[in-house]
Design a protein around this nucleic acid. Sequence first.
DNA 1: TATGAATGAGTCTTCATTCAT
DNA 2: GATGAATGAAGACTCATTCAT
Lengths: 193, 193, 193, 193
Amino acid sequence: MEAAADLLLEGGFDAVRHRSVATRADLPLASTTYYFESLDDLIACAVERNGTRDLDAMRSRVGEIVHHPRTSSETADLLVELLVGPCNPDEADRERLITRYERFVACARSAALRDVQRRLGTQVTDALTDALVRSDRDAREGTLRKLVAIVDGAVVSSLAEHDLDPRELARRILSDVLDIVAPLVDHPAAEGA
Amino acid sequence: MEAAADLLLEGGFDAVRHRSVATRADLPLASTTYYFESLDDLIACAVERNGTRDLDAMRSRVGEIVHHPRTSSETADLLVELLVGPCNPDEADRERLITRYERFVACARSAALRDVQRRLGTQVTDALTDALVRSDRDAREGTLRKLVAIVDGAVVSSLAEHDLDPRELARRILSDVLDIVAPLVDHPAAEGA
Amino acid sequence: MEAAADLLLEGGFDAVRHRSVATRADLPLASTTYYFESLDDLIACAVERNGTRDLDAMRSRVGEIVHHPRTSSETADLLVELLVGPCNPDEADRERLITRYERFVACARSAALRDVQRRLGTQVTDALTDALVRSDRDAREGTLRKLVAIVDGAVVSSLAEHDLDPRELARRILSDVLDIVAPLVDHPAAEGA
Amino acid sequence: MEAAADLLLEGGFDAVRHRSVATRADLPLASTTYYFESLDDLIACAVERNGTRDLDAMRSRVGEIVHHPRTSSETADLLVELLVGPCNPDEADRERLITRYERFVACARSAALRDVQRRLGTQVTDALTDALVRSDRDAREGTLRKLVAIVDGAVVSSLAEHDLDPRELARRILSDVLDIVAPLVDHPAAEGA
DNA sequence: TATGAATGAGTCTTCATTCAT
DNA sequence: GATGAATGAAGACTCATTCAT
């Protein structure tokens, strides 16, 4: 499963094959069909594992926050940092992002993946809520989901056109947006206003 | 090419194979390599065709606009209507949208597709600019691109989690956002302010 | 592998295909790629097998020698007999020879085959050395290699022009040549001189 | 036809295809089947053309000889020079040689090529006879054929094992051999002895 | 006469899956 | 339970040849 998840990250869905997984895991070829009902099943597990790994990484970034953002620009920075994660120009980070959004789209075609994705999406929102929102949970969660969607849109756009740094684009859009949405996100600056 | 484009719509990139295309087009198997340099080439053409079809549909929607939006809510409605298009619960509309965003992600892995996509993206922005913006073109285009990214993010999110109507989500997010970004988009309400 | 080796003998390199081998071996098409990394790999194995078969046949002829040649004419006869083997006008013998020299030329284009060929060449020389040379091994091996090259040249020539019996031509040339080279080959006639 | 001959030289028999020839000749694809009965026919023509080209080159080398060789070593040098031609370590010369001996072997499998080859072989011998032999033509031709076969054997051996310079090997073998065969070749040194 | 279009057969290779052990 | 061996179906692609024009 770990092998499958790694391959998924490195080469996308097309790279996850019985053969490649077994080779990578240094296991006999038949073991991948023995332990998993089908390749789709294995892929679903790999997707979940990567999603969880992503989520854990995000949670640990959440845990490292020392002070809450005060301006909308700071909030934008923080949210992007939390959602997008590191984004060095090396291949690994880019692959990680591509795979994440490949996952989104793949979910649209596969019911099995959709379940995984919904679960993960909820957990992402929860983790962010803990980090950014202090009261009136329900209402804020709705807002957060929107902000997350905005970041997603920015990243997808930048991936497709390649020449932009995903973080930079997401930050700019969010920053514009947050000046108005900010009051909904519960940071002191907004409360003070 | 038409067969390939249809298959792309219906089953995604994985459904576009020499065999399936030839069968669908009722042509001999070898014809797909006869007319196209490679499968990637055929796929790129199919992608372009679908993108252009999308674009044409959007342009015709632009042409049907009778009056310019006055409130941010109206602008949101219009923009979503133009970008997302009809979104009945039937399969066809959903597949059209899935394919569109599959295209985005596929571009992240293929340079050839990236060119196609960049060309299409520019034309989308142009068409929308004509519809929504009246002056100070350069600045507005930047804003438009951001709004488009926001809609994209909303649709991707809704597709992945399935239970939301893409239009509805996009409209809600945009509407929130536009209250602040609105001044940049050149509608009378903003001008009056 | 046996099937491939036979096909190679009968029809040359062009006759060794996944399909033909599988059919001949009465195995499913995929088995040829299952057991061999690639067709080139399979061909290399078939080449080696045929070469080894050739070599074994030669060794057994070496084993049957009852007395050492005394005259250069006898040496020529023996060497040709050992190297060329039986040469009845039936198809099989001719094909065996053609395949052998096809192998030589194929080696010029394929590094993998070259390794096989070099190994075989060394073993041929060794086996002949045992049969013909009794002392001063190093020097004689050099001579032997030359004599082998002469026989090869004769056979290639006769194969290309068809009307000559390869053995006959080789024998005539060698016989001429051996009168001078003979002293190097360690037979009594030479020793007596 | 010229295009086919060039391709044959550069990539061997496998490189001569309707497509590649037509492309190289900058002609429509169908022209190769229009002007030639079949691909085999085209190949036979290409083989003949290359053989003739080879022969012409050899003849021009023959024409440049200013004095006749006097020692067997000189004779060896000259014969190898005439038969093998230039042999720089660049790819072109090597390809030329490989193709020549591929031709020999191909002849063994194809009656059509055999005719071509026989015709060429005779002409080669004739040209060399003019250069090296002064009397008793018939007897000497037989000898010459043998010497040519020896050179062929040397070149084939060196091609198969790659690490030897074909000319060098041929020269060494011939030189050994000529000390005895030399009297048959009509050069002054031999006559004087 | 010449050629663009077309295609059936075949090229090597991959792969998910089955199954006997 | 675990796995090596096996295979049918499909993958992209090539190519000699035909044929209508």
